[in-house]
């Protein structure tokens, strides 16, 4: 029986090794992450923004969220608190002090940055989130299991979750108006902006335009296009008249947010070599130690 044990041990080990050999092909299954050279983006010029909050209204209307009438947006008291996008508002505008002119504060629209190398896409357990060729980072609600790992991963703290729904709570964030754009329309916020503080276009063009603006009006802008290189680049980029950390933009490096995590992950699972090697090693240890045990047993 013992010899049989050893034989079946070998057989099973080969079977497992063979099975492991097959897995790399399937391991590549994952979410779409296309980085098209023609991807679109939006350039947000915070020096142009007048804080009218029309974009908030337009966004809610376009996404079928509960929307108060437009006149109520003339009320500026919501600016008294820092607000974050949530499931009831996928974009919000915040107000910051303007040292140049206290009468005209700087207002900053916040929404998903649509990263070129999104942490959420890398993190999502079921691969529900994907980066599209048109630049949008969108998600498939039907796949989502509500684990909220995307929220943990996002360096901009954007995805929001419907915490007060017992059944079918959704992750929600700016979807770059994928549906509207499919109909040939502009993103709702871009369309509604009275002063075109939001410029929609191919990201390449926008970065060039942003650089032009900074070059031609260096006293108006800080020489930094936020999102050009942050976390490997984002589809939405920002221009500002004051340092970005004063406008509560997170200070982020140029490495893609999922970089370290993915390299660890791929290191551990480098074509399943480390796990299979470990398996083989343990098998060998088990075999030899059991043999030794048997011998001891025979001797006794």
């Amino acid at each position: 029986m013992k010899s049989q044990n050893r034989r079946s041990f070998l057989k099973a080990s080969t079977a497992i090794a063979a099975a492991a050999g097959l897995t790399p092909a399937t391991a590549n299954a994952g979410p779409k992450n296309i980085l098209s050279p023609n991807r679109m983006g939006v350039l947000v010029d915070t020096t142009v923004c007048i804080g009218c909050r029309n974009c908030e209204w337009a966004c809610k209307t376009a996404h079928g969220l509960d929307t108060p009438p437009l006149e109520t947006y003339e009320d500026k008291t919501p600016f008294d608190q820092m607000r974050r996008p949530d499931t009831t508002a996928l974009t919000v505008v915040n107000r910051y002090e303007n040292p140049e002119n206290p009468e005209l504060p700087t207002t900053v629209k916040v929404q998903c940055m649509h990263c070129d190398h999104p942490a959420c896409v890398s993190a999502c357990i079921v691969g529900a989130i994907s980066k599209q060729a048109d630049g949008a980072v969108i998600w498939d609600t039907d796949k989502c299991i509500g684990c909220r790992y995307c929220m943990v991963a996002c360096p901009f703290q954007i995805p929001a979750f419907e915490y007060n729904k017992a059944i079918g709570p959704r992750i929600m964030k700016c979807d770059f108006c994928t549906e509207r754009r499919g109909e040939g329309k502009l993103p709702a916020c871009v369309e509604s902006c009275p002063v075109e503080a939001l410029t929609f276009g191919p990201r390449e063009d926008l970065v060039r335009i942003a650089k032009d603006r900074v070059r031609h009006a260096p006293e108006r802008y800080v020489d930094h296009i936020y999102g050009e290189y942050e976390v490997g680049g984002t589809s939405w980029c920002y221009l500002a008249g004051t340092e970005f950390d004063k406008l509560q933009f997170p200070k982020l490096g140029v490495n893609p947010a999922p970089g370290v995590s993915e390299s660890i992950q791929h290191g551990i699972f480098a074509y399943f070599v480390p796990p299979v090697s470990l398996y083989a090693l343990l098998g060998a240890v088990m075999w030899t130690s059991r043999q030794r045990g048997d011998e001891e047993e025979e001797h006794s």
Partner: peptide, 22 residues
């Protein structure tokens, strides 16, 4: 006022950038 100046320069910048894009 600085803002007016800025606005002026911005418009100029915009127009100039339009040229460079010509």
């Amino acid at each position: 006022k600085p803002i007016t100046l800025i606005g002026l320069l911005f418009v100029a910048g915009g127009a100039l950038s339009a040229q460079s894009a010509a």
